[in-house]
């Protein structure tokens, strides 16, 4: 009997030890999970979602959160007021202190004094309060939320924030009117429309002819590279329709020429081409071909002042019997 009791007691002890170990492991696991779950600033939305919306800031999650809404305002002014009220407490209401800032974009210590909009659609929102207390990351997120929300209205084209009487200054820079395109959700998304000036050699082979072309770079290649690739593919038939004979554009770039790399630094664009560029074609003067490349880049991008051309990494000193300057500028007469 006593041995039976001893066995039972021993089993009870074992169970209790096992329970303690399991509990400890669970606590450890929870701690680890919690440690890994510290909230970070972020954005929680689906930009492709349709319908009216406004942005709020989830303080606990530290995230800019997009919320759906339905406008009740009958006119633009009412809708602007309605949206702004959802995101910023008005000064007169702030004394009530019943509003929970977690549901708004801006914290309760920042209030809206007023707003006005120009006929061109430039909305100015005047805020007051502890704006400088906001962290730079949070401030950027709140600013994004405000601009993206307001610009959904057709009447609003751009938004500016003023703190009291002063224009908003961030990082010693004045922040003027902003629009949705100033906020990037995807670094690789298609950028702005770019108009480039392609300088082709004319069919008389005596001069260059400039043709404007629009393209939509997808931002994963330097624009200069897109531009040159477009130049190397030659003029379109439709572009030559309006040009008279002797002034029509031809592709004078030697066939098979490839762009090894192109970078711009300090206003100088360095272009490295493949060896096919040096194919000798006596029918077209060397300087025309070189300026076809250089002038296209300089006229298309305002940050490029000069162009340096290399072939297979070697700086081009002469081309088709002509000396090549160390850096090419726009050919006189090319516009």
């Amino acid at each position: 009997m006593s041995s039976l009791c001893a066995t039972t007691a021993s089993r009870e002890r074992d169970r209790s030890v096992l329970r303690s170990v399991v509990l400890l492991l669970c606590l450890l696991l929870s701690a680890l999970l919690l440690c890994g779950c510290e909230e970070e600033y972020g954005v929680e939305d689906n930009p492709e979602e349709t319908g009216s919306f406004y942005y709020a800031f989830d303080v606990a999650a530290k995230k800019l959160v997009r919320r759906s809404t339905e406008f009740t305002g009958a006119n633009a002014s009412e809708r602007i007021d309605e949206l702004l009220s959802m995101m910023v407490a008005k000064r007169e209401l702030s004394e009530d202190k019943t509003e929970i800032s977690a549901t708004r974009l801006y914290p309760s210590d920042i209030v809206m004094v007023g707003w006005d909009i120009s006929p061109e659609g430039d909305l100015t929102v005047t805020l007051e309060g502890e704006y400088s207390e906001l962290s730079r990351t949070r401030e950027a997120l709140l600013r994004a939320g405000l601009v993206l929300t307001m610009c959904q209205l057709p009447e609003v084209g751009r938004v500016r924030i003023r703190i009291g009487e002063e224009t908003l200054v961030v990082n010693q820079k004045e922040i003027g009117f902003m629009q949705p395109s100033d906020f990037v959700r995807d670094i690789g998304a298609p950028g702005d429309i770019v108009t480039i000036k392609l300088c082709f050699v004319n069919d008389a082979k005596k001069d260059l002819v400039t043709i404007d072309r629009i393209f939509y770079p997808d931002d994963y290649k330097p624009r200069e590279q897109y531009c040159l690739e477009t130049l190397f593919s030659g003029p379109l038939d439709s572009e030559n329709n309006d040009l008279k004979k002797g002034g029509k554009a031809i592709n004078a770039i030697p066939e098979g020429t490839k762009i090894i790399d192109v970078t711009t630094k300090g206003g100088i664009c360095y272009v490295n081409l493949s060896k096919e560029f040096q194919t000798n074609d006596k029918t077209v003067a060397g300087h025309l071909v070189l300026h076809s490349v250089a002038d296209t880049l300089i006229l298309s991008f305002d940050y490029i002042d000069k162009v340096v051309i290399s072939v297979e990494g070697k700086h081009l000193r002469s081309y088709r019997g002509e000396d090549v300057p160390s850096a090419l500028t726009v050919e006189t007469g090319t516009e």
Binding site: A140, A144, V170, I187, D192, T263, T264
Partner: peptide, 24 residues
């Protein structure tokens, strides 16, 4: 720190605010 692009070797995003989760 304010998510504003101060340098872009492609010259396209200069001055823009990056609302990209990985950047934040």
């Amino acid at each position: 720190a304010g998510l504003c692009v101060v340098f872009d070797s492609y010259h396209t995003k200069q001055g823009k605010i990056l609302l990209v989760s990985e950047i934040i």
